[in-house]
Write a protein that binds this DNA or RNA. Sequence first.
DNA 1: ATGGTCGATAGTCGA
Length: 251
Amino acid sequence: MQIVSYNINGIRSALNKGLLNWMEQRKADVYCFQETKALREQVDHSTFDLLGYKSYWFSAQKKGYSGVAIFTRHKPDLVTYGFGNEVYDEEGRIVRADFGDLSVISVYIPSGSSGETRQGYKMQWLDFFYDYIHNLKKQNKKLVICGDYNICHKPIDIHDPVGNKNSSGFLPEEREWMSKFLDSGFIDTFRLFHPEPHQYSWWTYRAAARERNKGWRIDYCVTTPQVTVKAAGILQQVVHSDHCPVWVEAE
DNA sequence: ATGGTCGATAGTCGA
């Protein structure tokens, strides 16, 4: 299965920029979207239907904010919306679809960029997410955890590691969490195939960052070792958002 | 230190 992860920064905006045409050409089996910023009923589904995609949405309680969705050409055996936790589910940040023994997750990890309060929330959220994934891993051995992690793991993953040493998304405690998470039995599939630098998935809209490739790699397709991973990549030329899509070919 | 740019929304707020 080809699985694409893409923070689309508002699905209605991305649709206006040609998201559907791109999906039709790409023909991925599963699209994991983050930051849909809409309710399911705010989007016209007729063209998605024609393309053969069904979608499963988990939106935030707050209008126009956050939200994740999975679009798939294959009918899932099971879909779960959120963690099943009242507090951590308010912002619509995780949805999961199971295809046979393969569990595919679309996750949008909180940003801490707006200040200390949100940074604190992010770190708490990360601890909760870690436990959720480890519990899930006991039952479902084959996990593909796609999404916007809002963390650059290593200096190679950011254009200016020195200048950003105090920036949310590249703080030591966030990078340590990412190391702890991966070391606990998960694979950053992109790095498995691509050791080269300057490979990013997000650029600020400010200061022409994207054309100068002043970016961050914060979007990941992470798997358990039980998943057979044939290839992985970043689609930097695809522009409907301040992020670009990342993908993995997984069985 | 500030502001630079977006999307969704109706205030500004969050990223």
